[in-house]
Amino acid sequence: MDFSIIINEYQFYLDGLWTTTWLVTLSLLLGLLIAIPVGIFQNSENRLIRFPIWVYMYFFRGSPLLVQLFIIYYGAAQFDWLRESWMWYYFQEAWFCALLAFTLNTGAYTAEIVRGVIATMPEGELEAAKAYGMSKWQTLRRITLPNSLRRALPAYSNEIIFMIHGSAIAGIVTIVDITGAARVVNARYYAPFEAYFAAALLYMCLTFTVIFAFKQWEKRYQIEK
């Protein structure tokens, strides 16, 4: 056991921590932007709206994140028209492919959370809103969304944690995230226990930060009761 390796190579791990953090944060934010409208419209009565949304959610929840990343990273390179278009400027970068895969994936999962909490809104509150003469849009903005947010928090914190852990596959397409850093260090010193244990600690730090932040957030709502 020789943990001085980790101290000597801390720069790799710091870079990796930074990469994982921004990659996951940006995916989650963009994913949320997709998820809220998608989740709302999933409850729509119009089939033409519901069907494409269903396809999107079914695909991204129905296949492994790793496979989605491979399709985007290696699959995209197969099409000449894509390689000759302006889009290749982005698709040639591993970080863009990872960001796209992660965003679409978390977007689909989060949309399901959004759909669920909206579908299970207490009837009474909606009726009360109607009685006050609120329009559909007003009800959504003033009643449904704030109430749903509160109930979505525990499920969403789980999604964030899954995303942090799921991001470990970014290393497979040459990105040096936390896992990528551990692989490089392991490759150099042949010390898998030390290398991956350090990575595990960093992931745990990230995860506990998220758990702690969400606990505080949930507490704020409890006091209001």
Partner: peptide, 18 residues
């Protein structure tokens, strides 16, 4: 420097002009 698990993956990305 882009590091790959196998040489074959590196050839793929060379062909893809990455």
């Amino acid at each position: 420097i882009k590091r790959y698990g196998s040489a074959d993956e590196a050839y793929l990305d060379l062909k893809a002009t990455r």
